[in-house]
Every structure is written in structure tokens, then in C-alpha cells.
């Protein structure tokens, strides 16, 4: 029985570590001026985007997920939200105003990403 308990608690620890202790692996650095973000299967790919202060970049969103919650992406702190029609590219040019981390997500916070401005 103790083995089962140990395994169970290990699983709890593993969940915490996997979801909270780790950062999403796929990041894009906006050396080029445009980043294309795919909205599909519950995630933004890439979900972490690096940008430089004052350097404009274009975000191209392509939504391939039919679920209605994916149809809007909201950038907190940038006063920006975009409607994403299915299977179409929506382009938005932005110039990050100041350094910081700007999370972006769908309305329900299930799709999540970060724009990291340095």
C-alpha cells in the first residue's frame, strides 16, 4: 500500500513540476519581422515570442481549431484583441511599447502564450 501512496504522491509532484515548473519549449525570436502563430489543438505554436522594445513586428495568426473559444486572442496590457476567422491569416503589426511580459490568451484562458519584450 505504501508503494501505491508513494507513487500517487510522486504523480502529484510530477503534475506540479510539469505544468508549473517548466516553460513551454517552443519559442520564436522576432529577428525577422514576422512571426506566424498557429492556433490549433489547444495551443499557440509558438507560444512564447520574444520581441524588442520599439521594434515593430507582425504577428500572423492562423486559427485551425474550430472550437469557438479559439476565435478571439486577447493581449493583456496592450489594449489589443483580434478576431480569428477559421483558416485565415490575421496579421497585426505591433510595436512593443516597453519591456515586460505580455500574456496573450483566448477568452477562457485555455489557449495561453507570452510576448516577452526586452
Amino acid at each position: 500500500m505504501w508503494l501505491v501512496n508513494l507513487l500517487g504522491l510522486g504523480l502529484v509532484a510530477l503534475i506540479a513540476w510539469w505544468f508549473w515548473g517548466q516553460r513551454a519549449p517552443e519559442t520564436a525570436i522576432s529577428k525577422e519581422e514576422a512571426v506566424t502563430i498557429k492556433v490549433a489543438g489547444g495551443v499557440y505554436t509558438p507560444s512564447v515570442i520574444h520581441a524588442r522594445v520599439g521594434q515593430p513586428l507582425t504577428l500572423n495568426f492562423i486559427r485551425e481549431d474550430q472550437a469557438p473559444c479559439a476565435e478571439v486572442v486577447i493581449f493583456e496590457g496592450l489594449d489589443l484583441s483580434l478576431g480569428l476567422p477559421l483558416n485565415e491569416t490575421v496579421s497585426q503589426r505591433i510595436t512593443p511599447p516597453e519591456a515586460g511580459t505580455y500574456p496573450f490568451s483566448c477568452q477562457m484562458q485555455m489557449y495561453r502564450g507570452q510576448l516577452i519584450v526586452t
Binding site: 505544468f19 516553460r23 513551454a24 490549433a40 489543438g41 505554436t45
Partner: peptide, 11 residues
């Protein structure tokens, strides 16, 4: 997909 990205949702 979300699991691989260290994310989780209703699905």
C-alpha cells in the same frame, strides 16, 4: 498537444 506544451485545458 497541450500536455507537450506544459499546458492543460478542459480537453
Amino acid at each position: 498537444n497541450t500536455l507537450r506544451h506544459h499546458n492543460a485545458n478542459m480537453d
